[in-house]
Amino acid sequence: MRDYIIRRVLGMIPLILIVMIVSFGIFSLVPNPFAALIENPRIKKADIQRLIKAWGFDLPWYLRFFKWFSGVIRGDWGPSLLYPGSTARDVISRALPVTVRLMGIEFLVSIAIALPIGIISAVKQYSVTDYVVTVISFLGMSMPTFWFGLLMMMLFSVVLKRPSGMPLLPAGGFITPGLEEAPFWAKLGDRAQYLVMPVVVLAFSSLGGYARYMRSSMLEVIRQDYIRTARAKGVPERSVIYKHALRNAMIPIVTLIALSVPGIVGGAAITETIFNIPGMGSLIIQAETKADYPTAMIGLMLSSVLVIAFNLVADIVYAWVDPRIKYS
């Protein structure tokens, strides 16, 4: 097992390098933002040349990659172009907690709903309940998040009002200005209001996939002989399902959960854009279209490295919960 882990960790290095080169190559296609400054008569030509040189835009993209990469290795992630005066690292560390809060809550909510309905749907296969769960899962998977987000906004921020005339839920943002220093509970309540709509939108779109997965995993287990044996020897049905079957059905779910964790950091670009949440998803999109490659690259690398690492974690956890699996 130890050799297996060492080999896998070493295998991650070329993978991360490919990811870096592909992403950097694509970003380098975004036109040089300083070239446009030539139009501006108030900026000296020499200053523009200096900026272009400092940012490495005078080099071909692969040399710029090495310049960036050697900085990254030394721990210098570079300045941000999108927010002049901040380093890319600061910009990312402002967006990260916002996204983790949103996506973490969304993840817990969708798992907490999806797993029970997936189990019920499998235990009562082909019943009305099963059909309702299946249809709801498909509705969620097919619903474009930007449309659902706008519909929610129309309902809760335009149509429904509070007695005071204010919208029932704020249409966007993540905190009411002026409440940053409020007491803990007031601040919590304020933040919760802003989270309701995005969390519902994201959870509805992801819970279908989890529920379908839970259902098929449970169905696979229920068909097996040891479940029939348990029933034959008179184990009560509840205990057959929740003790004998569920434990094995959860094994693939554990890996699914491990593979979903990186998404918590990556954020959800569309939903964050609609609800005007300054998280990772919308930040990366903004950064890359403005040629702010240091910020965009850190954001992307953070989630890619987590995806690669959690793939390994998923495999290790899988072997740990299921002793039948041996890696060599």
Partner: peptide, 23 residues
């Protein structure tokens, strides 16, 4: 397959947008 794995571990959506914005 290593290349496929690498492409799978890149967050697709941001790069999709970057490429669409240039192409």
């Amino acid at each position: 397959m290593r290349f496929t794995d690498a492409m799978l571990s890149i967050p697709t959506f941001p790069l999709l947008i970057a490429l669409a914005s240039v192409l």
